[in-house]
Design a protein around this nucleic acid. Sequence first.
DNA 1: ATCACGCTATCAAAGCTTTTATATCTATAA
DNA 2: TTATAGATATAAAAGCTTTGATAGCGTGAT
Lengths: 140, 140
Amino acid sequence: MDMPVEERLGLAVKRAEQRLMAAKHAAVKTAGLTVPQYAALLALAANPGISAAALARECLVTPQAMTVVLKNLLEHGLIERAPHQWHRTMLETHLTDAGREALHTADAAAVVIERRIADAFSPDERDSLRDLLDRFTQAI
Amino acid sequence: MDMPVEERLGLAVKRAEQRLMAAKHAAVKTAGLTVPQYAALLALAANPGISAAALARECLVTPQAMTVVLKNLLEHGLIERAPHQWHRTMLETHLTDAGREALHTADAAAVVIERRIADAFSPDERDSLRDLLDRFTQAI
DNA sequence: ATCACGCTATCAAAGCTTTTATATCTATAA
DNA sequence: TTATAGATATAAAAGCTTTGATAGCGTGAT
């Protein structure tokens, strides 16, 4: 208990991330998506036919977590899954038209937030913040 | 889709927070706690007898979320809850000896991480990072 | 050809979180 | 005194996440 308010630095990072997630959550909600669903659709649009496991790595979550996200996207008709030709053990995932539309709507709202953040800093400050955060991550 | 890699700045923050949480998770796990449980015990130690709703505000979560956390802590015998004298509608929560011990163990491990992070920066850099993160949070 | 290793998918258990909705009690105002 | 507002607790539904465990399919080394 010899550190003042739990952490100072860690606290600031957590607060920033919390706000960011809250804002993004509200943004993508306009398209009926959650943040993890939005992230999955975004990666899916860039990698058509990717497997669930690969998608999980792309989104930095466990395969099990991605399975649940995909299950919900599937139930909402935003993606399609079909077994791969040769690798029968693999399921190819693709966006549906509805999925593409939802992604487009969500992305428009998400970009607004990113732009607002970016505009709050000068180019030098952006570089500085990115550098400090990278070192923060490395230090752990 | 006119922004490069989703966000750059938001991504760096998220990555830093993700690493921080992963490290903290592993740290407090040595005491058999989760991060939310650790946060609750920490706030509880500083505010003996606090109500669940007040504790939720302290920890920046919803009362319902805190209820679940307290339920689990109660089942593990780390806290006690008893109705307040006048306000029968309120439950006073207190740490048990086991709870105090678990908190002490978890805190020791958590402080190690904070120290490692703090040591990665000069005092000026710490101030700079904190300032940039605060502006990041404000911008949203 | 066979066996082991790695990748894929999935199930189950345990936890955290949010939104929505109820019910009760306290305190203050009409 | 009654009514309203504020605070507390709890329940249910829906989602995300992790760890642990099971099982099938390919590739490469033996």
